[in-house]
Computed example of a mutant assay.
Amino acid sequence: MQSLVKILIPRQLFMLLILSTGLLNHVILIPNLLTAAGRDSWLSVLLVYPIAIFFSWLIYFIVKKSPKEGLFSLMKQRLGRVFSTILFIPMMLFLLTSCYLTLRDLMIWLSAYFLADAPIFMINIILISVCFLVTLSGIKAMAIASGFLLPIVMLLGFFIAFTNIHHKDPSLLFPVLAEGYAPLMKGAIYGLAGLLEIYVVILLQPYSQEPIKFRQMFVLLLILTGLILGPLSAAIMEFGPTDAVNFRYPAYEQWRILSIGEYISNLDFFALYQWLSGALIRVGLFMYLLCAFFTSKKQPYRLNPKLVVVMYLLLFGLMMIKVETFYFYSAVYDYFLPACMVFFLVQILFSVVLVLVFNKKGDHHGKNSKVETTS
């Protein structure tokens, strides 16, 4: 990544992450948290927040100790192309799998609520074509688009939160730990799976004009936690812990019950704006980062179009494989999210060890060079 020209300020970088990771936390994660912990799911999020702060500090440490080109560029320089590529494979699999799950979940939601009569093939073609154009436009265009999309998405989030306040019964959040500590600990797994995705900051570091600061990481983590905690607690307060668990999209159901007076209702099309904004940026960004692993020499943030076409054809092929909705959601709950939690924990700790080893060897090499010069 030595040829990269820095084009993003940290604020743009974090807006990208809030839109992309926020979709995971706001849409995909909440129903799985409710399934795992029920009424105590909101408490699980509070439980893992201090743990996530510690790991966000470790991520900041990795970014601080890495060169401007980023940790993965450093790994390629120190470990060689073959061995570093082997270490890149888990991250590449995560990016590709996340893109597939995001598109599959979006397609199921669109087919169920908005495009029931539309062919699945047509929905796939449209979604993947738009994501392809987003990736091909480059990371700067995505950052600029996020600057326009995110404020509206957040305003709509506050709008639904305050408009539905008369439906909320805070007493439904209690009593806590009615079924013991097991649901709480189970929910913590899913909470960490969403919050630890801030590891993607390390992938975006090479594109940042300025050094990333810990207080920026702290604010980012706080916002991502709020994106889980807000609609999660609202779903329990509005529908009760039993009905909330039965909803596939609790955040969307909050839009469906929205009404203002006698004549204003059915405003759930605003949810479509939120979902599409997050999904298109998430898939476009993750596919961009995935293609970046295969690009050794980049022009200013432009990927090889042929490479992007090949990766999207692979994604399209995965999307065309017929998967039953029940088995898809079961796989996300039983395998993908727990695996993400383990993956990020291991990846963060492994990255810290690599940074410490590389810096120690660098200092040792510098001292030896200084001794040889003086002698």
Results as ranks from 00 to 15, higher is better:
92 M>A: 07
105 D>L: 04
89 I>S: 03
89 I>G: 06
94 F>K: 08
101 L>E: 02
105 D>F: 01
92 M>K: 05
108 I>E: 15
96 L>N: 01
110 L>K: 04
85 T>A: 11
86 I>W: 13
86 I>H: 03
85 T>Q: 09
104 R>G: 09
96 L>W: 10
101 L>P: 02
87 L>K: 06
110 L>G: 12
111 S>C: 02
107 M>S: 15
88 F>S: 06
91 M>C: 05
92 M>F: 05
96 L>A: 08
113 Y>R: 04
95 L>I: 12
88 F>N: 07
105 D>H: 13
88 F>D: 12
97 T>A: 15
108 I>R: 00
99 C>L: 02
89 I>F: 06
90 P>L: 00
109 W>V: 04
102 T>P: 02
87 L>V: 02
105 D>R: 08
101 L>Y: 11
88 F>P: 00
83 F>M: 02
95 L>E: 06
93 L>Q: 03
100 Y>E: 14
85 T>D: 01
84 S>W: 12
90 P>I: 10
98 S>H: 11
106 L>E: 14
108 I>G: 03
85 T>K: 07
106 L>G: 11
95 L>P: 00
108 I>K: 01
110 L>E: 14
94 F>V: 14
83 F>Q: 06
113 Y>T: 03
97 T>W: 12
86 I>G: 05
108 I>C: 00
97 T>H: 09
107 M>K: 14
84 S>H: 03
97 T>Q: 08
97 T>F: 11
90 P>W: 04
107 M>W: 02
103 L>K: 05
103 L>R: 09
93 L>K: 10
100 Y>F: 15
89 I>Q: 08
101 L>W: 08
108 I>D: 07
102 T>V: 14
102 T>R: 12
102 T>K: 00
